[in-house]
Design a protein around this nucleic acid. Structure first.
Lengths: 229, 229
DNA sequence: ACACACTATTAGGATATCCTAAATCATGGA
DNA sequence: TCCATGATTTAGGATATCCTAATAGTGTGT
């Protein structure tokens, strides 16, 4: 209770980055490793150990030395708040300021720490309270709840099936630009025409075009079965 | 030349705040005093002395010990860039996100350090490249030039004159809300009906209402002679 | 010309964050 | 079982920023 109030106070940019990273690295309660965090944030492992120790003392996460870290309920709440901000900012920039999906990430990465709750909610309202961002990632609600829709990696779709792209797991501008050049983005329908078990090559039909997708992207693109017309 | 390139690199939030403060405190080449800077930024004088020394070494300002500080050309450029950002952000928030002029300052104060040049220019474009912010303050152009229009303080307008409010020198939300409640904002026409030399009391007619303005606000409101209908 | 009242600077510290180099732990394969 | 390898933590430092207390400079009024 009393500690929970402190969360909304003022976490530094660094702290918010750590919490978000650990949140992303520990799905289903698997502890995040020091080296994973260091890697994601581009910091040295000792820096991470130091910060992790401090955040544990503040009750934002639990650390078992040499084993890994998990967010506490309080830390999780703070992390989700940042994720909500990040995704809403991305959606806003694409919708109202002409950003393309490969350039929003960097801008959102800075803004997510600077924008007030008021501004975030006004942006959400201006967007009509969207549930997903431009990459198809779900936007956590203001109360912290998240509606995740499990999709199937394109690499696992059987030949002949037509599916809708639902979510694109990539933040590197280069990959996103490549996907955009192929017309692949959330909401688009594709049909799997061929699969090569070797290297997980998948041939798909998008509109009138055919493309071959390799392993990386085949696992980055998550799909939902499309309604048959 | 080479040093100038460094400016756009990455000044910290603190540094940007110092430069902006010194810019605002040294109009017409009058050096800014340590205590003035400390006051404006709510810091202790020794902190200011320390930062000033560092910034001098970086070529952003000139410091004559015990005398004061002035921005160098490089520092001035950086300061104006922040002012442009601040005022454009204020204009954007009022225009597109439903902010009132008494609440934008605080939000802009944080965003001005976080937004990219790209985003600032897109916001400017979305606004139609405005020349003034919601308080009537001129928005520096991207090239650093500023078009200041000299107005006359309401306190100095002769009885009988009708003028247009041009600029409101205030950032305190309380004062701005009071002015808004009186219908006083840039663009509004007022007629001076009476003046009391004691305490600089000015009675004005705004639409169908009459208000008495005291010394503080009489000097905060800058006016231009209005076109006679 | 001088002392006093300010203002500004120096001294000495604290905190947050990061780093490199040197221990320490955990675990899979011989 | 035991040790080599890789992951993690501890040790020791650097930098940026802020603070309080003590010292130094400036300028005014007599």
């Amino acid at each position: 209770m009393s500690a929970a109030a402190a969360v909304s106070e003022s976490l530094t940019r660094s702290v918010e980055d750590y919490l978000k990273a650990i949140y992303q690295l520990s799905p289903e309660g698997r502890p995040a490793a020091t080296s994973e965090i260091a890697n994601l944030l581009a910091l040295s492992p000792p820096s991470v150990t130091g910060m992790v120790k401090r955040l544990s003392e503040h009750g934002l996460l639990e650390h078992v030395p040499y084993r890994g870290v998990l967010l506490t309920e309080e830390g999780r709440r703070a992390a989700i708040r940042i994720v909500r901000r990040h995704r809403l900012i991305e959606a806003y920039l694409v919708e109202f300021l002409g950003y393309s999906w490969d350039t929003v990430h960097e801008e959102a990465e800075r803004l997510e720490h600077a924008v007030s709750d008021t501004m975030i909610e006004r942006m959400a309202a201006a967007l009509g309270n969207p549930t997903v961002d431009p990459h198809g990632d779900p936007i956590p609600r203001a109360d912290g709840s998240i509606h995740e829709i499990a999709g199937t990696p394109l690499a696992d779709i059987p030949v002949g099936d037509t599916v809708e792209i639902h979510r694109v797991h990539a933040s590197q501008p280069e990959r996103l630009r490549y996907l955009a050049s192929l017309g692949l983005r959330p909401g688009v329908q594709v049909t799997v025409v061929d699969r090569q078990p070797v290297d997980d090559l998948v041939t798909i039909q998008v509109g009138n075009d055919r493309h071959v997708i390799g392993r990386e992207l085949g696992h980055a693109l998550h799909c939902l079965s499309a309604a048959r017309p």
